[in-house]
Design a protein around this nucleic acid. Structure first.
Lengths: 332, 332
DNA sequence: CGCCTCTTTGCAATCGATTGCAAGTGCTAT
DNA sequence: ATAGCACTTGCAATCGATTGCAAAGAGGCG
């Protein structure tokens, strides 16, 4: 600021340039100014700079976790993704503005971008084709969504290869002799729908019949896995010998209930999850699951968003998944 | 902005006042201006306002989770706390700036507050009396720490009643006939030290000897619980009949390893955890644990920080904990 | 009818950093 | 000696919203 200029005996303009290592400024002057600034531990006022520059160097992350669907804010997978986003954003020199607040959600673009709180938006939690995302797409706001590409919805996504994940998981169960494989998840969510498509592909490839009754709509989180297992698996006459859960959290709930009921996993019923959250390995038995590459996910979300902000054309990114085999699937 | 003023045929000053419902402005004018602003969906530029007001309406949350101590960024307890902070901050009209970036950590105050990115700081993860916190205390930056009060460290904290938690958990085990109770945790962290003090209190109250060998330094996270169980509990000749873990994550790792080794929980060894993360209920067996009130924690962190920012004197807050009894403790 | 009061509105300065353009210095070449 | 050029530095405008103070208009009262 002005003080430093006074102390250094130069103008504010020179101070400003010196602190940014502008080549316009003489080497000695620059050093001296930087020295003085350091001594008086002066920091450029980020608010003023951002104001002048019409940029915020900030990305907003919106967690559209709707408790109605059983998503918890502490969902281990989403949080790991958030961490990875934070790392990458920091790496690129951006701050992260976090929002989980439903009151801002009505007009994400207005609140964050038009009012200059952030330069771009990362939306985690695609939901069931949330209409707010379509609104957002109509505005000029740069944003990117973690999830699946959905035809007819005009926004850019980054997500795992959910179809392949569903396919591989199901195929694994079939290879281990399972024939009646239940599917636990809410296929109204695009990501889950893709996993479901992979599930059906594997069945049909193996010549197994697809039984509608084996598809059990289940919201996220352990408690729903627990509850649905209670009602549909134990309560019904499903006669299934395996369960593919669209998340590890659901799988944890399933295993808990099965275990309480004296059903052995994987002997009586095999279980496969999705995500590979830290808890999957520490379950008893360890959960065989489809690992999503969180690190790559965060990296791509940030990089693609920055590209969008620069006006570049960005396509959908699909990240490969990896089958992680533990005990719950009954692999020989 | 100027456009709205033009459209409404008034000055910018009037627009500014009208949009804030200033009583200086005539009712009709106010309505008309607001109407016009809405039609053209104009939003006040938050950057400009913050710049002028010398305030950011933003709190920075710094996650000092050091991987060295086994803390994971997705630690369920910390994330739940973060969510609660986010809710409360939003409720109070503040945005949240998230940082997990070690590069900014060297000078938290400079990066966030002095450079006007945030008005105050919430630090999650007290660590082993992190010297950075003492630096922060020396600056004029308003900040608050989740953790335990530590004599000689001059910053304000909000945290659970860790001593009571450790005491109650241990007492429960003793009441259920356990005599050799191991303590798993790193007592160099102030919070864990308090739990340890409670543990010793309960022992001495029951007239049980304190055995140094039963205290096993264990970093956070499941994997360390697993590993220490392997080495110290199974590998050693401890002969313990119960384990008090300073976190549910550690307990999960412990139970996993015990189960693999054929040791029955709670029959052979009872286990008690801390935090009551969602996974605790879904473990097999369900983990008896000390519940921390995350909701109240987030609320107090934000409220106390705002009070500090207003220049009020704020003391340490200690939040009561609650014993949650499940199967792992062998309660009759 | 004039003066005073109250309400409503506008003027203009301000926050702190950035940057296009002009100007000053010193040196070389003619 | 002076025009020409490179290199440094400063001037001053700018970003958009806020607010103290002044002023204009409306209404009341003697």
């Amino acid at each position: 600021m002005a003080d430093i200029a006074l102390l250094a005996g130069v103008s504010e303009a020179t101070v400003s340039r010196a602190l940014k290592d502008s080549p316009l400024i003489n080497e000695q002057t620059r050093q001296r100014v930087q020295e003085i600034a350091r001594e008086h531990n002066y920091r450029v006022n980020a608010a003023a700079r951002n104001f002048r520059m019409k940029t915020t160097k900030t990305l907003a992350v919106v967690l559209l976790v709707d408790r109605e669907w059983g998503h918890e804010l502490s969902d281990a997978f989403l949080m790991a993704l958030l961490g990875s986003i934070a790392d990458e954003a920091a790496h690129m020199g951006y701050d992260l503005l976090l929002s989980t607040n439903p009151q801002n959600m009505t007009d994400l673009s207005a609140f964050f971008v038009e009012s200059k709180r952030a330069d771009g938006l990362i939306v985690i939690g695609q939901g069931r084709n949330d209409p707010r995302l379509d609104n957002l797409a109509r505005s000029r706001t740069p944003f990117i969504v973690w999830g699946s590409e959905v035809p007819g919805h005009d926004y850019v996504t980054v997500g795992s290869d959910n179809r392949a994940g569903g396919y591989e998981a199901t195929k694994l169960l079939i290879r281990n002799g399972r024939r009646r494989i239940a599917f636990l998840g809410d296929i109204r969510h695009p990501e889950m729908e893709d996993r479901f498509i992979g599930y059906k592909e594997a069945l049909s490839e193996a010549g197994l019949p697809f039984d509608e009754a084996l598809v059990i709509a289940t919201e996220f989180s352990r408690s729903y896995g627990y509850e649905k297992t209670d009602k549909a698996i134990l309560g019904g006459n499903l006669n299934c010998d395996a369960i593919f859960c669209v998340s590890d959290n659901i799988a944890l709930g399933v295993i808990k209930r099965l275990s309480e009921a004296g059903v052995r996993v994987p002997d009586d019923i095999a279980v496969v999850g999705f995500d590979d959250i830290p808890g999957a390995a520490f379950s008893i038995p360890g959960i065989t699951t489809v690992r999503q590459d969180v690190h790559e996910g965060g990296r791509l979300l940030v990089r693609n968003l920055l590209a969008l902000m620069k006006g570049e054309k960005v396509g959908h990114s699909v990240i490969p998944v990896e089958l992680v085999i533990r005990q719950s699937c009954g692999q020989a």
